[in-house]
Design a protein around this nucleic acid. Structure first.
Lengths: 223, 223
DNA sequence: GGTGCAAATATAGTAATACTATAACGGGAA
DNA sequence: TTCCCGTTATAGTATTACTATATTTGCACC
């Protein structure tokens, strides 16, 4: 098992999360946030779970949104490393793009950990709660703090591969964002609102990837 | 000025919102929720704004999520009526689909009100806060209560028109959902995260519609 | 081995939030 | 007139999201 080195923005945490306590906060926090959802998740409950106190947790993260944004960054940083490594083996940009799409859909060839996190759990959290990282009134100030940089960087990477497949295309970035967003919101729909998609039946990520690859196929191939 | 008759699920409100107080709650609520965002919005602040008390508001809606879901329903019901009316004038399914996409992007030919609401304000609220209608732990029970029916119905309507354009397509519903979702998340990106799209420059909804129509064009036309 | 210093953790408290229980009012029907 | 019901108000509670301040712990340096 390989472990990627992932370093989220140091401004997100108030203290070094590599300390024993910081590490437990991160490790248990992702499970608790996933179980309760962001609204019901509190630092008090997390403190109880790790046998510590509320204030201890507040000394590591200013609030629960920042903790979510930490996981959000880890996820996109991990995905970028994963895409980059897989892509190195492939010469054809279209093949690389298909690999990226499969990665967006959670189809991963390896069991590489994202730092101390299980990437499948990270993806589940991002699918269910990720949008709350930016869907709030502080989105502009958070954006100035570069908190969404890993997400944007991955979109830019995918846009570059779209562009490589279809150099004359003028909406590569919008299309890359479409792929990234839909890989998550269709997964949510498959799980909770199956009327929105044909892909629901088997909860099969391969179907999801196949749909997005088909979309890409039709979009990038010049006619 | 025409006013469409829009009737959200009666289970959403606890009382008849056509009463003078109910009407003021709805009318001022949308402005306050838009100004503060769902997190900072409280029934106490709304009560102060309409010169009433917190409990009065609680007697109309069980909680602020239900109020948001009320607006969410009104928006999709309104859009469905709008699409249906515009579509009646057009014979060609592809033309109807393009009209629907423009409607999704907020390009509306008329100033038809959505009940007592300004549809542009409704759309702004749905773009910024709408996802919180379903992105929570109660999504499955809310779905059983049919709270997302208007949204699903519009997706189904658009899927039917996609199918009419490309009868052999087997992912019409997923593609309809893609159009609906991206018409909102790209608008959010244009406003707050412009790195994600080329469409930002002029904040121009026509560009947004043009991108989605181009996507549709490439997707539905058989090759 | 003692001193200083900073990181880490704890105790205690506060303002606001998201409600609920219960009471009072007010206007129309029997 | 009284009963009833829709409406609004008063008062309170448990929880949340923090902050101010105190105490402990580890370890670098003399």
């Amino acid at each position: 098992m390989v472990r990627y080195l992932i370093e989220p923005d140091p401004g997100l945490a108030l203290r070094d999360v590599n300390s024993p306590t910081g590490s437990r906060i991160l490790r248990e926090g992702i499970h608790l946030m996933d179980e309760l959802g962001l609204e019901a998740f509190t630092f008090k409950k997390l403190a109880e779970r790790i046998g510590s106190t509320e204030v201890t947790v507040y000394n590591y993260f200013a609030n629960k949104q920042r903790l979510l944004q930490y996981y959000y960054q880890v996820y996109w940083l991990w995905l970028a490393v994963h895409c980059e490594q897989e892509g190195r083996l492939l010469k054809d940009p279209y093949e690389r793009l298909c690999g990226d799409i499969r990665a967006l859909c959670g189809i991963w060839s390896t069991d590489h950990r994202a730092g101390q996190f299980d990437p499948q759990l990270l993806r589940k959290l991002v699918v269910n709660e990720g949008a709350k990282s930016f869907l709030h009134k502080n989105v502009d100030s958070d954006n100035e703090l570069k908190l969404f940089k890993p997400y944007k960087d991955l979109c830019a990477h995918i846009a570059a591969e779209v562009k490589a497949c279809a150099p004359r295309l003028r909406t590569a970035r919008s299309f890359a964002t479409t792929l990234v967003e839909m890989s998550h919101s269709l997964e949510f729909a498959m799980e909770h609102l199956p009327a929105l998609t044909e892909l629901s039946a088997k909860h099969d990520r391969k179907q999801l990837a196949a749909y997005l690859i088909d979309l890409t196929d039709r979009f990038v191939h010049e006619r």
